[in-house]
Each structure stands twice: as structure tokens, then as C-alpha cells.
């Protein structure tokens, strides 16, 4: 072995399959998910039942869609704090157009997608144009959207929520696509789980198998070097912000069609859960490293923990403590593996 290592260039050195597995960013989160899964399967009776599985998958799904989009953005080196509120904004646009102006739901959805993409592009353009941290720019968008949500909702409906989606034109078909349910083993599974899996698969393919994926890693890891070798940094980053906004549109659409109403204050504070799920999934806060599968698994950890605590019947007053401790444990596992991964890579 030692002789071979001397003659072969280190970049071409063969790595053992185990090491190759260990350097994957999502491995830590997978182990964390397994640990959480095993823990609640043992501690509670209902966690593994069909009803139990459907509950925590449902909780993970919409969070997961957003976490995957946010993970792409974070790999690209940026944050989007407006992502949580955006899920409400897009839902409100859809609901107001459909219930107040009697638009067909599909057209309303299309209009809210355009709205989302415009806001996403604005976020990206502002960040790239001003050179300000995206943390600050999207914080501004976050607050602005929050005010817009409440202001417009009260102006149009006179109340703080828009309801009545069920009786709009095209609800049946749109509801089928975004909010239908499947009965498996006596439990109701939401179609959002499929959207989550599909979105994760597309994002993974994009990140690992396409030129755009290479660009995303490049702009997040070293923007200046990326620009110098000809990567379109601005276009890539603006596209990432638009992807996050589009994901928020998807989640907003799923929510508005499923719950047939939107509250003006929905989604506030969720943006941090997206970022946390992405970080649990192996994303670095500094950009340039991360995975879509990892973020999806991070969301799964979140969903399993949130619902698992309820299944366990622990006192609700301590809920956030349990959640925090379990997440910390998951991140510690993750961190230990990343350190090992970095050693292997060297």
C-alpha cells in the first residue's frame, strides 16, 4: 500500500468504499435519523403504527420541501429569512384571487408562482447588486412580507384569515394534485410526502449531476474564484433565491388547498427551522458544502422528534427543551462524522 501511495498522485488515490461513504455530508444526519427513529419506536407504542408514521411523515414533508430548497441556497452561500413568511404570502395570493376575485384556482396558483418568483428574484438581485449579506436583505423582505400579509388580508377580507377555498372553481383538481390523501393500512397519508420525495430527488440530481450543480458548489465555496473561471455567479445565485421562493409557493399551495384557509400570520419563524434542518443535514453555514438528501433527512429528524415527543406523552411545558436537546444530539453526531470526513479527505 505504502509503495502505491508514493507513485500515484494523491488526487487520483483510490479511497476505500467505507471512506467514500463517510465523507458524504448527509451520513451524519442519516445516523441521527436512525437514532431518533429507534428511540421513539422503543419508547412509544404508536410511533411505528401506520397512523403514527403518517403523522410524522406529514410533519416532515412540507418542512422538508423548504429545507431542501434552503439547503441548495446555503450550498450557494446565501440565506433566505423570508422563506417562512413566503409560504403564507403565496397562500394568501392564491386564496385572495380565488375566493375574492373568483379566479380559477389554477390561475390563482400560477399568479402566486409569478409573485413568488418576482420576490425571489428581487431578493437575489438586491443581494448581488448591493453586496450586502443576504441575512440582512432577506430579513427586510421577511418583515415587509409579514406586514403585507396582514395589511392586505385585513384590507380585502376585513378579517385576519382568508377562507372559503373549498367552494372555488378548480378546487377539486388542484386539491387532488396538491392536497389529496392516500389510505394505507388504515392511516391517511398526505400527497405532500410525494412532493417532498420528488423535490428532494430533483434537487439531488441537479446538485450532483449537472453543470448548474457544480456552479452552486462553486459560488458558495469561493465566489471570486468561481467568477474568475467563468461561472455566472449572479445568475446562479438569483436562480437559487427564485428556487427557494418557488418551493415556498409549493408549500403555500399545499397548505392553502389542504386547510382551505390561510391565516395572515402563518409561517412566521419557520425560516429558522428550514435552516436548522439543512444544517442538521450537513450544510455548512459558510456555504460550499451540503446535500439535498441531508436536508430532507434533517426535516425527517425534526418531524419525527416533534411528533414523537407528543406520542411519548411528555409534559408539553418541556417540549422545546426536548426538541432542543434532541436536535443538539443529532448535530453532535453529525459534527463528529464531519470531522472524520475531513480527516479522510486530507
Amino acid at each position: 500500500m505504502a509503495v502505491v501511495a508514493h507513485t500515484v498522485d494523491e488526487r487520483l488515490a483510490r479511497t476505500r468504499p467505507l471512506d467514500r461513504l463517510l465523507v458524504r455530508p448527509e451520513l451524519g444526519s442519516l445516523l441521527g435519523a436512525l437514532a431518533v427513529f429507534a428511540f421513539f419506536s422503543v419508547v412509544t407504542d404508536q410511533f411505528l403504527s401506520a397512523g403514527g408514521v403518517s403523522t410524522w411523515l406529514d410533519d416532515s414533508a412540507t418542512l422538508g420541501i423548504m429545507a431542501v430548497a434552503v439547503a441548495l441556497l446555503m450550498v450557494g452561500g446565501e440565506f433566505d429569512l423570508s422563506a417562512g413568511v413566503m409560504t403564507a404570502s403565496t397562500g394568501l395570493v392564491t386564496a385572495i384571487l380565488a375566493t375574492q376575485l373568483n379566479w380559477n384556482v389554477w390561475w390563482a396558483l400560477l399568479a402566486s408562482l409569478v409573485f413568488a418568483l418576482v420576490v425571489g428574484a428581487l431578493n437575489g438581485w438586491l443581494v448581488m447588486r448591493t453586496g450586502l449579506p443576504s441575512f440582512i436583505v432577506t430579513l427586510g423582505t421577511f418583515l415587509a412580507l409579514q406586514g403585507l400579509n396582514l395589511g392586505v388580508t385585513k384590507l380585502v377580507t376585513g378579517t385576519v384569515q382568508v377562507s372559503g377555498m373549498r367552494s372555488t372553481e378548480g378546487y377539486a383538481s388542484a386539491g387532488f394534485v396538491f392536497a389529496s390523501t392516500v389510505n394505507v393500512g388504515g392511516a391517511t397519508f398526505q400527497v405532500s410526502v410525494l412532493w417532498w420525495l420528488g423535490f428532494t430527488a430533483v434537487a439531488t440530481w441537479l446538485l450532483l449531476r449537472t453543470r448548474l450543480g457544480n456552479w452552486i458548489f462553486a459560488v458558495g465555496g469561493a465566489a471570486t474564484s468561481a467568477r474568475q473561471v467563468g461561472v455566472p455567479v449572479v445568475r446562479t445565485k438569483v436562480l437559487l433565491f427564485m428556487t427557494t421562493a418557488a418551493a415556498a409557493w409549493l408549500v403555500g399551495g399545499i397548505n392553502v388547498l389542504r386547510y382551505t384557509s390561510v391565516q395572515a400570520n402563518q409561517g412566521i419563524g419557520q425560516e429558522f427551522f428550514y435552516i436548522i434542518a439543512a444544517v442538521i443535514g450537513g450544510c455548512l453555514l459558510t456555504g460550499g458544502f451540503g446535500s439535498a438528501v441531508g436536508a430532507a433527512v434533517g426535516a425527517l429528524i425534526f418531524g419525527m422528534t416533534r411528533q414523537g415527543i407528543v406520542f411519548a406523552g411528555w409534559n408539553n411545558d418541556w417540549f422545546m427543551l426536548f426538541l432542543g436537546v434532541m436536535l443538539l444530539a443529532a448535530v453532535l453526531v453529525n459534527n463528529a462524522f464531519r470531522r472524520r470526513a475531513e480527516r479522510v479527505r486530507r
Binding site: G51, G52, S54, T55, D58, D59, T62, T188, N255, R258, Y259, S261, Q263, Q266, R306, Q307, V310, F311
Partner: peptide, 11 residues
């Protein structure tokens, strides 16, 4: 959050 509350009922 209403969606989370709905999930608690499912739970």
C-alpha cells in the same frame, strides 16, 4: 400554527 395543531389532532 393551525397546520401544526391539525397534526397534533392527527397524532
Amino acid at each position: 400554527d393551525p397546520a401544526s395543531q391539525a397534526r397534533l389532532v392527527d397524532n
